[in-house]
């Protein structure tokens, strides 16, 4: 039970990042390898802002809120910039060249962070959050976990409503299917792609700040592992599928927590990947995967 609670908490962070992977893949068929690094930048942004405000005597809730919002805004804009500069010019080129560009962006973000923040670990302040806990079915649950889990779910719900029920959301789904046709409907395709990157960046940053607060230690390479797991989550759920990414993220979190708890933390990633491969072999498009309609 304890593992389940911990797994769900961490899984909700994965899910937020996985959503970015899945949305961007859905819309331009790009596995955005730099996405995990946006999460890392988010964590560092939150840390920086917290550092600035810790000197003031503003109430803790306000400080947290500000750092979260600043991180989300900065990373959202960073994602948009990445799209404009590195990806948009290559949208009509081969898919592998844009993939390599994404790898380049990832490398640039990691090494940029290395230059700015150094190679060591930085630590989030530990005295900000309440430490109160309660018992649930024999497991200790902290209010922090509840709060973070709720916030993640809320963000995911907002995103889902946006994609399913707004005109821009419909346009996103449409242009994932046929860009030129979407243009002919009056959709500003480049603009919608930018919005997608913005949303992906915002969610990744939220995840980064929460992760920083939860584990307290952050590092310029933290985006790599996160990216790997979140991408796995997106594929597990069926890449391109939004509810799939949410469920996939939570599943990976829980799976990993159990694997680390019952077997060994060294093998947790092996177990996660083994399960992923098994799922794909049985159901090649992931749990909620789109059925590929092919006319011949």
């Amino acid at each position: 039970m304890q593992y389940l609670i911990n797994g769900l908490t961490i899984g909700s962070f994965y899910a937020l990042v996985a959503l970015g992977y899945t949305m961007i893949y859905g819309i331009i068929r790009l596995i955005n390898f730099a996405h995990g690094d946006l999460f890392m930048v988010g964590a560092f942004m939150g840390w920086t802002v917290l550092g600035v405000f810790s000197a003031t005597h503003a109430p803790v809730a306000v400080v947290l809120m500000i750092s979260l919002l600043v991180a989300m805004a900065v990373v959202g804009l960073l994602a948009v910039g990445m799209d404009r500069i590195a990806y948009q010019p290559l949208l009509r080129a081969s898919r592998l060249s844009i993939l390599i560009t994404a790898l380049g962006v990832s490398l640039a973000l990691e090494n940029g962070a290395l230059i700015l923040f150094g190679a060591g670990f930085d630590t989030y302040p530990t005295n900000l959050l309440p430490t109160t806990t309660f018992l649930l079915g024999g497991a200790t649950v902290s209010w922090v976990q509840v709060g973070m889990f709720t916030l993640s779910l809320l963000l995911m719900l907002l995103l889902y409503l946006f994609v399913q029920h707004t005109a821009v959301g419909t346009a996103m789904r449409a242009l994932s299917f046929d860009q030129d046709a979407a243009r002919l409907m009056g959709v500003n395709v480049e603009g919608v792609i930018m919005i997608t990157f913005l949303l992906g960046g915002v969610l990744a940053a939220a995840s980064g700040v929460m992760m920083g607060l939860y584990y307290t230690q952050i590092n310029f390479l933290m985006g790599f592992l996160m990216g790997l797991r979140a991408f796995t989550a997106a594929v597990l759920g069926g890449i391109g599928n939004i509810p799939g990414a949410m469920v996939g993220g939570l599943l990976i979190g829980v799976l990993q927590s159990f694997a680390a708890g019952y077997i060994s933390s060294q093998w947790q990633d092996v177990i996660v990947f083994a399960v992923l491969i098994l799922v794909l072999v049985v159901k090649p498009t992931g749990i909620f995967g789109e059925r590929v309609v092919e006319r011949m």
């Binding site: 005109a167 419909t170 789904r173 449409a174 994932s176 299917f177 030129d180 046709a181 002919l184």
Partner: peptide
Amino acid sequence: SHVPEGRRIFANLTIEENLGLGAYL
């Protein structure tokens, strides 16, 4: 308005959504 060759409807959206998108403006 331009109706392209091969129809190019959004197969992954409902008919109602397709029409709604036609009026995206």
